[in-house]
Design a protein around this nucleic acid. Structure first.
Length: 554
DNA sequence: TGGATTTAGT
């Protein structure tokens, strides 16, 4: 339906108000319009959904006299951006029932939902659908969404494969792949990827460095962490944000360098948050420095009594020190002040349906079966010599109660569900929004042997792969693929750009960083062409091509 | 003509 000139103007105004969140004005204009087409409706729906007012957006959406794929897309992405992934998928489902053909935007949002939920089956289905509809040449957006989806759903090899095949990659594509390496703790892979990214002429951003540092932290690469954390500011002019500091503190504290970590926090130009302190406290716990941990936790609470993370942190430290009364007191205090905590949940996808569980959950229609399975799991674990690791329960309740509470942790419920409702021999993939506790970690490891199942748990920070009673850090097929990928990229780029006369390695890379950070410094390694190219590109000529470099050389 | 899109994480 075409609108007249006046209405076209109104429609543009509605869009303008919507995109700035001025929904009051947008709605007034909308109500005044004598006739509205799908474009105006969508602008309004999108305005509400961008503000997080999804109930309002949904009401309008349901009232729409006609909906095209863009309207559906606005609604799906609205849910996805508010982290209401299941609802986003259910809207997508409705869209298909209505017979509306999906396009790239919707599919990207759907893949994002799959990534967050760990919904691999649905993600795979979207991949097949994309190939059928758009052929094998993936667009950069869909490609990136697929790279991210496979990485977050536990299939790093598929992620790499899609990434390699992408005809066009942007910073988001590289960042998604980098994030994948971080999830699996592939420090070296991340480094190689970073190096190749630079040589492809892309400028890393703050997300790139989050991935890089995250990969270092899980891979225990302290020196690399220091070098790249410094290089981030000095070479790329990216100021570290809280998360970067948290990563760096984590790298140092994990390695037991608690003093250096403390100094880093003290030198921060921005106020450290609970994540930053939390990384230090986690280090204190691993390296047994309870005194430092407790003193930090107490100070934190004084400074910011409204922040949930800080109560949990302090409570955890008291529990670690065995100070149960104090731990409980903090929890009570938190409740009294009405501070919200994020509830823990685990999900598992079976036959395209995502099932979610919280601790002690009894809402599922198959609750009876699930709890019978849990009982069986407990018995078989006990027979295999498993001792419940009760230090994860923070209160000083009876040991028996602790065991009960632990055995109903959400990931155990999800695993029980998976054991019942998936075919024997197939992997069980569980997603948890928080970190897996050490008791569940051990139990899951043993369950993988007892039930002869590969169990893959994705928690808020990384993947845990359990096979035959072992946690598998790196899969051989991924390592092989990684080597091929790096080799391929290296060859291609070296050939095309004549940049490097030998394989890049960490030493050269570190030197390049140092030389750029301090041009007057004497290097052990003479400045390579790569250095020259990096200087060129980061002096603001990011798109400098091979011919520029050759000109510089000549 | 116009309205929808992904990485991290607040």
């Amino acid at each position: 339906m075409g609108l007249g000139a006046d209405q076209f103007l109104q429609s543009s105004l509605i869009h303008m108000y919507s995109s700035f969140g001025g929904m009051g004005s947008a709605k007034v204009l909308f109500d005044e319009m004598p006739e509205r087409n799908v474009v105006v409706w969508t602008a309004l729906v999108n305005g509400y959904s961008k503000l997080g007012e999804l109930e309002m957006a949904r009401r309008l959406f349901d009232e729409m006299p006609e909906k095209d794929v863009i309207a559906w897309s606005a609604m799906v992405s609205g849910y996805v951006q508010e982290e209401r992934f299941k609802e986003g998928l259910s809207i997508f489902n409705e869209m298909q029932v209505e017979g509306v053909t999906a396009n790239e935007s919707v599919l990207v949002s759907v893949l994002s939902a799959c990534s967050h939920l760990g919904a691999l089956d649905l993600g795979r289905w979207v991949h097949l659908y994309v190939e059928r509809r758009f052929g094998h040449e993936l667009s950069v957006n869909l490609g990136t969404a697929l790279v991210d989806m496979y990485a977050k759903c536990g299939v790093l090899s598929a992620s790499l494969q899609v990434f390699q095949g992408l005809p066009c990659k942007n910073v988001l594509s590289w960042n998604a792949m980098m994030g994948g390496f971080a999830l699996y703790g592939h420090g070296r892979g991340a480094l190689g990827l970073f190096s190749n990214m630079l040589r492809m002429g892309l400028r890393p951003d703050e997300v790139t460095f989050l991935g890089l540092l995250g990969a270092f932290s899980h891979g225990g690469m302290v020196n690399e962490g220091r070098i790249y954390f410094e290089g981030m500011t000095k070479i790329f002019s990216i100021s570290p944000r809280l998360q970067h500091y948290a990563c760096m503190v984590d790298i140092l504290a994990r390695a037991g360098l608690l003093e250096e970590a403390t100094e880093l926090i003290q030198s921060m130009p921005i106020e450290p948050d609970a994540c930053v302190w939390g990384a230090l406290v986690a280090g204190c716990r691993v390296h047994g420095n309870v005194a430092l941990g407790t003193s930090i936790g107490e100070k934190l609470l004084e400074f910011e009594p409204g922040c949930a993370g800080r109560y949990v942190l302090l409570s955890n430290i008291y529990a670690l020190a065995g100070r149960w009364d104090d731990a409980r007191h903090v929890r009570v205090l938190m409740k009294e002040k009405g501070v919200d905590t994020r509830p823990g949940w685990s999900s598992i996808e079976v036959d395209g349906l995502v099932h979610e569980f919280v601790v002690g959950d009894k809402r599922h229609p198959y609750t009876g079966e699930i709890y019978r399975k849990l009982e069986e799991m407990g018995m078989r674990l006990a027979m295999a010599g498993y001792n419940v690791d009760t230090k994860n329960v923070l209160y000083d309740m009876d040991e028996e109660d602790k065991e009960v509470q632990l055995s109903y942790h959400s990931e155990k419920l999800a695993i029980a569900f998976g054991l019942i409702f998936t075919d024997s021999g197939t992997p069980i993939r569980v997603v948890k929004n928080l970190r897996v506790c050490s008791d569940c970690h051990l139990a899951t490891k043993m369950l993988s042997k007892i039930y002869a199942r590969e169990i893959i748990v994705r928690d808020s920070k990384r993947f845990h792969h359990f096979t035959d009673g072992q946690e598998r850090r790196e899969s051989p097929s991924v390592i092989r693929q990684l080597a091929t990928l790096m080799e391929g990229l290296k060859k291609g780029v070296t050939h095309q750009m004549d940049l490097h006369d030998g394989p890049p390695n960490e030493t050269i890379h570190a030197s390049v960083f140092h030389s750029l950070a301090d041009p007057t410094s004497n290097l052990n390694v003479p400045p390579s062409l790569e250095t020259v190219w990096m200087r060129l590109s980061f002096d603001g000529v990011c798109s400098c091509s091979a011919s520029n470099v050759r000109a510089e050389k000549g």
